[in-house]
Structures are given as C-alpha cells and as structure tokens.
Design a protein around this nucleic acid. Sequence first.
DNA 1: GCCAACGTTGGC
DNA 2: GCCAACGTTGGC
Length: 162
Amino acid sequence: MSPQSQKKYWLLKSEPSSFSIQDLAACPKQTTFWSGVRNYQARNFMRDEMRAGDEVLFYHSGAEPPAIVGTAAVVREGYPDHTAWDPSDSHYDVKASPDNPIWQMVDIKLGRIFDEPLPLDSLRSVAALRNMELLRRGSRLSVQPVSRSEFETVLRLAESKR
DNA sequence: GCCAACGTTGGC
DNA sequence: GCCAACGTTGGC
C-alpha cells in the first residue's frame, strides 16, 4: 500500500444495468476487474496513476437517479484488458491484441455500499464539491480523479444519512 | 427520446 | 494540422 500522503482518490462510473455495485458485492471476494474502458484519458489514469490502496467512489450513471452509491479500493494496478481482443465482447477493439493490448484495467474490491445513494442533484448543492469533475457540465470521463477533501466530504454526506 | 458535450476519424 | 462528420455518453 502506498503511503497515506500519496494515496489517491477516484470516481468510477458504471451503468447499473450493465454492472452495479450490488453486482460487485456478489463477486467472489467482492472483487472484479474493471474492463471495458475505451477512452485514452481514462486509460492513462488507470495505467499511470492508480495504485493499490487508492480509494474509489462508485457511481451509477444512467440510473434513476444517477448517484454515488458506495466505495471500493484498487487492489491490482493497471494490466492489459483482455476483453479488448475478444470479438464476442461488446467493447472489442479490432486494433488490440495480446502483443498490443492498447487498453488497460485494474482490479477493485468493494468498500461499502451506502445506506442511501447520494443523488447527483443533491451533490450539486454541496459547496465543498463545487469543483468536482463529476459535476462539471459535459463531464463524461468514466475514470476521474477526486480530491481527498471531495472524497471525505462524500463520505461525511453518506454518514449523515445513516 | 432529445440533445449538448465531447472524443475520434479521416479527407484535405 | 485543421476541421467537418460522425459516434458515444449521459443527464434530463
């Protein structure tokens, strides 16, 4: 685990109809590989900056309402995303191969599921989250950095709803 | 289902 | 290297 001072925080988006935090909870060891990211900026975060021990906010996009629903932790650092060269996979990339993986994934393990999801529109009214990437107009990154204070603010909000 | 925002592709 | 066309994301 990296030193506390270097621990980073992230937000990962997933459509719950595709993979929800409840699905993560049902995985063996509550751990899964985070495959299917097909955006270079998001890949670079996973490849270059995510470290084991980093903490993650789990976000449900396309949900009603869209919301942060819990936490997870990075348990394995970036490695090739084998789904990229699987023609039967919905995220198949014809240019990827074992010799040229192009895309990367990490492994994450469930932290906890919040008792109450924190809906996107409720986060918009929190002053401490004013600059959060998730709340930026047109923000589409599926892997995005979160500041330590933003992460802690979100945890406090989740705690206040217990 | 609409559409704004954004990333990627490819002609030039 | 520009930029129009196109595809995707994702809130609403």
